[in-house]
Structure formats: structure tokens, C-alpha cells
């Protein structure tokens, strides 16, 4: 059951990687990176169920935070601004 969900998520991650590799514009690649960051949170939640350990959800929270900050920084870079504007 859980293995089926894991395989669906793995397939989604490969589709994201395809978009990151082939995106015609830089913004397409950034969208792929953003979506892949949210998918990793789902992976961490599934690992928490499989191994029955709570600390994977700490990893999920920290990963979500860092992915959000990274996406915002990439968007600022795309807009052509410095980081402190």
C-alpha cells in the first residue's frame, strides 16, 4: 500500500526532473525545483510511516522551510534584483 504511494511519488519526481532538465526557459527549471522541493516533504512523511519514527517529520519541516527560502531567492534573482531589496 505504502509502496504504491512511494512509486507514484517517485514517478512524479522523475517527471519534475525531466522538466528541470529540458525546460526551455530558466523559469521552467525553477518551477520544477519548487515542485520537487514540495514532493520531498511528501517522501519524508511516507518514510516516517514506514519506519515509525517521528524525526523524519522534523526533516520534512526543515526541508519545506529551506525549499521556500530557496524558491524566493531564485524568484528575486529572476526578477533581476539584489537579495536585500
Amino acid at each position: 500500500m505504502i509502496e504504491f504511494a512511494l512509486s507514484l511519488l517517485t514517478l512524479s519526481a522523475f517527471l519534475c526532473l525531466f522538466r528541470i532538465g529540458s525546460g526551455p526557459t530558466p523559469a521552467d527549471r525553477m518551477v520544477g525545483i519548487d515542485i520537487l522541493g514540495i514532493l520531498v516533504v511528501g517522501f519524508c512523511a511516507l518514510f516516517a510511516v514506514i519506519t515509525d519514527r517521528a524525526f523524519y517529520l522534523n526533516i520534512a519541516l526543515a526541508w519545506g522551510l529551506l525549499s521556500f527560502i530557496g524558491t524566493t531567492a531564485l524568484a528575486k534573482h529572476l526578477e533581476g534584483k539584489k537579495f536585500d531589496e
Binding site: 504511494a5 512524479s12 517527471l15 519534475c16 522538466r19 511528501g42 511516507l46
Partner: peptide, 15 residues
């Protein structure tokens, strides 16, 4: 969990 994984897959097909 299975429904959520399916919607993740739909989102990435949309990508």
C-alpha cells in the same frame, strides 16, 4: 495517502 500521491502525479503530469 494514496489519493494524495495520485494528485501529486496529476500535478507533475501537468508540469
Amino acid at each position: 495517502i494514496i489519493i494524495g500521491a495520485l494528485f501529486n502525479l496529476f500535478g507533475c503530469i501537468g508540469l
